[in-house]
Design a protein around this nucleic acid. Structure first.
Length: 576
RNA sequence: CGGGGCGUAGCUCAGUUUGGCAGAGCGCUCGGUUUGGGUCCGAGAGGUCGUCGGUUCAAAUCCGGCCGCCCCGACCA
């Protein structure tokens, strides 16, 4: 590629609204151009990187028996109605065709795969299978952000497994996990597999692949002493603290102007871990209207926080929002001074009374200070279950730095990361909805077990840049670089242009991908563009180096410059 | 969806407070100059000031609606 002929130009300045390094550098380097919020055009250089990542993904998928396909992006509404997601997936984009035809734009491809599976899979002899494709996804993200990090239209590699049973799926799953490790390793962005919440995908379990990054959107928990790692929404930890040897009496105590945990702990003179924190929600079951929901009283030890995803999972799904003061009072509790003591506790989610869901931390410790449901008063010496009952005891507290690891007893810490991939064991969530079955050895129909495994390619490209850049530009890992060699001529010397032209031809004949900066520009401009674009090898033809018998070769990632005789150049590049 | 900010030349932005000729740097075109780290000099091209409406003798500037974009939060495979 001759730079003088390339479509588009590098920019000296990035758009003012770009904040992430990847966003700025990919635009400045002419890799991408914004088309709309969360919508990007890949320019020729950017598309070359996409193809490199594509090849790595296909290679790793093929290596574990994957078969590449190409599925449509326009999905008849009936397929989404069949799985029940036409109306429940709120990021689903819909388009109307002629007449009454309606389509979903491909937000994901489970619907297509399960429909294919039920048509093509007849018996156990047709299983297992692993298929994948690389194609566009469309999601009506409420907030696109961070350049290529969160898009409304993006490119995803998604693979799907079809198995006869949960055991068969379990057996194959580690191969996929390993392939994912390989992929991220090869792209220069080693990732961590962590346990994750299954979210809207449904299914049994999932692993999220994350790349640690300070500006990441994800928080995950990792143990400093062992290999435990999990998304904060799935992370378990040990509630430290012992039952007191002697339970104090329950005493009502005046605590004027103590509406926060910190205030009341300070006023009474106990640590926050010896208090109970009440948090109120309005919960709506999945598929229900909000007015069919109910009030939920969340209770955690005062030093902890409620994690809403854990709470929702403990309630069996649905959505929650913060309860209003009116709803709290209607439930019989006093905002700021609430506790289960004195309330009628519901036995189940269908029963009357107040549904109290308490974190297991209430069993670690005792003689708690809790609200008295009376403005200005708390109880001291509150102990579970002596003084109050709860509807449900569950893990609803958020893990955080310094807590005790449930696996090894060491200390865990919270870190930020970017989600780069996700593996789901879907089980029969989709095959049951569509009656996708196969005949087993006994001739009996059984549901197909599915798994789905995604990697966002444009996001991965952005992550690579986040991990591989300096103040001057991108430093592409060889495996995904748009070109291997950035050739340029500088200065006026008589043979300079001729030598560079012939090197451009000979290097390409040797099989190198070469970007040739053949512009008549000043050296500074050319060097700066080379640093910005970030191709691994820079070959400079100039009067100075020619006089010394060669050309200057420099790696983008290194400082040293090498003088290499022209006839040895290809060999030098190849062996380094 | 809540909070905040922005929209003026291809890009970065000034001009809006206090209404009165449409501006700068970079980029682009032409001529010259320079040639190992974003050279220098000169001459040009380029904008219905996001959009629709209102106020006014007069609107980039004041008022209102709409659209678009960014950031924080909620949400999120």
């Amino acid at each position: 590629m001759r730079l003088s002929k390339s479509f588009g130009k590098t920019l000296r300045e990035a758009p003012a609204d770009a904040e992430l390094a990847s966003h700025k550098l990919l635009i400045r380097g002419n890799f991408v151009r914004p088309t709309g919020a969360g919508i990007y055009t890949f320019m020729p250089f950017g598309y070359r990187v996409i193809r490199k990542i594509w090849a790595i993904l296909a290679d790793e998928m093929d290596a574990i028996g994957g078969q590449e396909m190409w599925m449509p992006n326009l999905h008849p509404s009936a397929l989404w109605e069949a799985t029940g997601r036409w109306n429940t997936m709120d990021v689903l984009m819909k388009v109307k065709g002629g007449g009454s035809r309606e389509y979903a734009l491909s937000a994901t491809h489970e619907e297509i795969v399960v429909d294919l599976a039920l048509r093509e899979t007849e018996s156990y002899r047709d299983l297992p299978r692993m298929i994948y494709h690389i194609s566009k996804k469309f999601r009506d993200e409420p907030r696109a952000r961070g350049g290529l990090m969160r898009l409304r239209e993006f490119i995803m590699k998604d693979a799907y497994t079809l198995d006869t049973s949960e055991e068969a799926l379990d057996e194959y799953y580690p191969q996929m996990i390993q392939a994912y490790y390989n992929i991220f390793e090869r792209c220069g962005t080693p990732a961590l597999a962590i346990n994750a919440d299954v979210g809207a995908m449904g299914g049994k379990s999932s692993h999220e692949f994350v790349v640690p990054h300070d500006q990441g959107e994800d928080t995950f928990i990792a143990c400093a002493d062992c290999d435990y790692a999990a998304n904060v929404e799935a992370a378990v930890f040990v509630r430290e603290g012992d039952k007191p040897e002697k339970l104090d009496d329950l005493v009502k105590t005046a605590t004027p102007n103590c509406k926060t945990i910190a205030d009341v702990a300070d006023f009474i003179g106990v640590p926050t871990s010896q208090t109970g924190k009440a948090v109120f929600y309005w919960w709506t079951a999945a598929g229900e209207q909000e007015d069919a929901g109910r009030f939920i009283f969340g209770l955690v030890r005062g030093d902890l926080e409620v994690n809403e995803v854990k709470l929702i999972n403990a309630l069996g799904g649905g959505t929650v929002r913060a309860a209003t003061d009116e709803e709290i009072i209607a439930a019989g509790a006093t905002p700021g001074y609430a506790s289960p003591i004195g309330l009628t506790i519901a036995d189940s989610l269908d029963a009357p009374g107040v549904y109290v869901i308490a974190d297991t931390s209430l069993k670690a410790g005792g003689n708690f200070v809790v609200g008295a449901n009376d403005e200005g008063y708390h109880f001291t010496g509150a102990n579970y279950p002596r003084d109050f009952a709860v509807s449900q005891m569950a893990d609803i507290a958020q893990a955080d730095t310094g807590y005790k690891c449930a696996q090894c007893g060491g200390r865990i810490e919270a870190r930020r990361a970017i989600e780069a991939g996700h593996c789901f064991k879907l089980g029969t969530r989709y095959s049951k909805a569509t009656n996708a079955t196969y005949l087993d050895k006994n001739g009996k129909p059984q549901f197909i077990y599915m798994g789905s495994y995604g990697i966002g390619i444009d996001r991965l490209m952005a992550i690579i840049v986040e991990k591989h850049h300096d103040d001057y530009g991108i430093i592409w890992p060889e495996s995904v670089a748009p070109f291997q060699v950035h050739l340029m001529h500088i200065g006026k010397g008589s043979d300079v242009r001729k030598t560079a032209d012939s090197l451009y031809d000979s290097l390409r004949k040797e099989g190198f991908e070469v970007l040739y900066d053949d512009r008549e520009a000043s050296p500074g401009v050319k060097f700066n563009d080379a640093d910005l674009i970030g191709i691994p090898w820079r070959v400079t033809v100039g009067g100075r180096s020619l006089a010394q018998g060669g050309v200057e070769v420099k790696q983008r990632s290194e400082k040293e410059r090498h003088l290499v005789p022209i006839e040895e150049l290809a060999a030098f590049l190849r062996q380094s």
